[in-house]
Design a protein around this nucleic acid. Sequence first.
RNA 1: GCCAAGGUGGCAGAGUCUGGUCAGACGCAGCGGCCUGCAGAGCCGCCCAACGCCGGUUCAAAUCCGGCCCUUGGCUCCA
Length: 495
Amino acid sequence: MSLVVTDTLEDERVEFTADGDVTLYVCGLTVSDDPHLGHARLWFHADVLHRWLEHEGYDVRHVENVTDVNEKITARVGERDEWTAERDVAETFSASTFSAMRGLNLLRAEVYPRVTEHVPEIVDLVATLVEKGYAYESNGSVYFDVTRFDDYGALSNQNVEELEAQGEPDERSEKRHPADFALWKAGGVSETAARDHAKHDHGDSVPSGETWDSPWSEGRPGWHVECSAMSTTHLGDTLDVHMGGRDLVFPHHENEIAQSEAATGETFARHWLHVGLLEMDGEKMSSSIGNFWTVPDALEELGVNVVRTFYAGAAYRSEQALTEEAIAEAEERWDRLSRTYDRAVEALDSVDARAKAEDDDLRAGVATAREEFAAAMNDDLNLREATAALLELTDAVNRHVDGVSEGGDAYDYRGLREAVEAFDDLAVGVLGLQFKAESDGEVGLADELVELVVDIREAEREAGNYERADELRDALGEVGVEIEDGPEGTTYRFA
RNA sequence: GCCAAGGUGGCAGAGUCUGGUCAGACGCAGCGGCCUGCAGAGCCGCCCAACGCCGGUUCAAAUCCGGCCCUUGGCUCCA
């Protein structure tokens, strides 16, 4: 079975095609602030695509840029004492971005290129475009001439004639066509821009940011050209997949196509995948609107597994609303998966590998879950359906374990092992969830103490002192230990 | 105004390309049962109910065509 994806350029579902190696470029972050859950949504879906392609036998070369040259970054210079230059601000938020990515359990990309390290490549690309007649210099700045590129607007279905002006008012007079966009801008960040984007008062010393030498002027690279230069540098002229947020379709990605294809004459990207925006209170989550949850805060409050389960609840191409209900649902789904995984591992630990009992329901459940998971993933990465396949497997596992503890047949060692392998392969390997259960049999001090309390409570229960027993259960609950009384005694787990 | 993505049961979310075989699966919320000292977890069952609106094509439309309404995004920095 092959993977079908929704391609923005083709405007429809298309079969994913690539040879054994897949080049994946993700339009990354401008490091001017802590990343929020909207950014993380793109990362998550790129990560799951990466994981699924590897699962299906592809070698994935994943590159994600870090935009560390931007007027919003410059605008924050001086906000803290240690931020004396644009690079200081960028460094702070690059660090917080990478830390957030680790916290989200994202597979590492091969390279995280930065604009500051690719200025020569950017200048070369701009020079090529000028030589080929696709760009022109004006007052030391260089603009892309959209009228020279026939397919301009194909990605976003825009008509060049109807486009409004791109860029700041002061640069419009330098352009031949209002839709032309900057490849290189002479000089530093304008005082207006630095003041507009600032979160503090600059007073008299307004930062203008770093500038670089070029054939046209001492200046700064345009935003769109960075991605073209960096993706080509690391992944070649044609990308297999280019991913980004839906809000970047126009003008950013449209401009990338124009620059790259004008320069190389090759198709820039075979597949364009756009991730829908995360909404909060009916509008998109955005730093500039202020309705955002930072990744560190969300991880602290919900944990990586709930966050990832939440994202898996909606298709990448759709919008997704972040609501209390949606989070509660994700918590329930995750708890259910993780409890069942723990039960399966525990049962597995308690049986002899030579155990011969067979539970056809369990074994069929594993096979079905694997088939349905794969079918869902190949159907345009339908993660909710894929998760549903795993949740159906939890039913089969629970039925089996319940059946045994209620006096039925013995455990089906092989069936349980296959179930745990399926969870490890799919939930852990593809969805990037992390189960806590370890079957190493080690007992730590915490376990011994909890068992001590559980024993005391058990004695109270036997003596009929339920009030006292409930107090102990509540007390354990407060320190994060869940107690469950079952047919075969009391079990506990660290929540 | 122009461009794009959507509008399906209480919520969430498939199906729309390839008209009929599914308005399906999973989950949340709700209801009942088993189990239980209670709770939780787990299992089983229920949930009469929904295809934004108006036309058209067709033996047949959630699915195709036309018009309209609404939501979100883009057209300025934006994942």
